Simulated assay, not measured.
Amino acid sequence: MAVIFYARVSTAEQTIEHQRQQAEAAGFKIDRIVADHGVSGITTSLADRPEGRRLFDILRSGDTLVVRWVDRLGRNYADVCDTIRQFMRQGVVIRTVINGLTFDGATRDPMQQAVRDALIAFMAATAQANAEAMKEAQRGGIALARSTEGEIKYRGRKPSFSKEQFSIACDMLDLSAGIGEIVSATGLSRQTIYRIRDDRAAAAGALMRWQG
C-alpha cells in the first residue's frame, strides 16, 4: 500500500517542494510524488492534466492519496466531488495536509456516509468559491489598470504574502481554522492573516496589481 502525494502549481511563484515539505512536516511518509506544473485547477480537470490523469492508473485499492487541500485536485465543485468519490470507489483513501481530513469508502453506515459526503461537497464548493473570488478581484484590478492607463499608477504597498500563501490562508479561514494554525501553515504574521480575513478582496487586488 503506497502513499502518493499529488501537488499542483499554477504560477511560477508556487513550488512543489513547498507543498511536499508541508506534507512531511505534518507526518506523512511519502512513497511517490506526482505533480502538475503551470496547470489551472479552474479550467482543467484532474483527468485532463498531464500528470493528474496518471493517478487514475497508479492508485490501487488500499493506497493513500495525499494532497495539501482539495483545491489541488481542482477548483470546480462537480469535478472535485466526482474525483474524490471515484477514488473512494476504487478503495483509495484521500487525506489532506491542511486540517488532517480523511475520506474513504470504508463506512457502510448511511448517516456517516451522509456526513462524509456533505463535508466533501462543502470543501469542493469552498475551493470553487475561493477561485471565483480571486477571479473577481483580478477583473477589478485589470479594470483599474485600464482606467489609469497612461498615468502614473499607484499600486500601494507590496503584499507581504504570495498567491500560494493567500490561497492557503483563505482555504483555512473558510474551514474556521485558528489564526495560530494558519500562521504555522503559511509562515505569515498574525497581522497579515487578520488583514486577509478582514478584507479578502483588497488582499487579492493587491496581489493582482503587483503581479501585473
Rank of each mutant, 00 (worst) to 15 (best):
A12C: 08
A12G: 03
A12D: 15
E13A: 13
Q14G: 09
T15M: 09
T15Q: 13
T15H: 13
I16K: 07
I16A: 04
E17C: 02
E17Y: 12
Q19D: 10
Q19R: 07
Q21L: 13
A23L: 02
A23S: 04
E24V: 13
A25H: 09
G27L: 07
F28W: 08
F28H: 03
D31Y: 12
D31Q: 10
D31F: 10
D31K: 11
R32D: 12
I33D: 05
V34N: 07
A35P: 03
D36N: 11
D36L: 08
H37P: 02
H37D: 14
G38E: 14
G38W: 14
S40V: 12
S40Y: 12
I42S: 14
I42A: 14
I42T: 12
T44D: 13
T44S: 14
S45K: 15
S45C: 03
L46P: 02
A47L: 06
A47G: 02
A47V: 12
R49S: 10
R49F: 12
P50D: 14
P50M: 15
E51K: 13
E51W: 04
E51G: 03
G52Q: 05
G52I: 02
G52A: 05
R53G: 03
R53C: 11
R53L: 11
R54H: 12
L55F: 04
D57S: 15
L59D: 05
L59A: 04
L59C: 09
R60V: 09
R60S: 15
R60D: 14
S61F: 00
G62W: 07
D63V: 09
T64Q: 06
T64N: 06
V66F: 04
V67D: 00
V67P: 01
R68A: 02
V70K: 01
D71F: 05
D71Q: 11
D71K: 04
D71A: 12
R72V: 13
R72A: 09
G74K: 01
R75W: 06
R75F: 05
A78M: 05
V80D: 00
C81G: 01
R85F: 08
Q86D: 05
F87V: 00
M88I: 11
Q90F: 02
Q90M: 09
V92E: 01
V93L: 09
I94P: 06
R95H: 01
R95V: 00
R95G: 00
T96L: 06
T96K: 11
T96H: 06
V97R: 02
I98Q: 11
I98G: 00
N99E: 15
G100V: 08
G100Y: 09
L101K: 15
G105V: 04
A106M: 15
T107G: 12
R108N: 15
D109A: 07
D109L: 11
M111F: 14
Q112V: 13
A114N: 06
A114W: 06
V115Q: 06
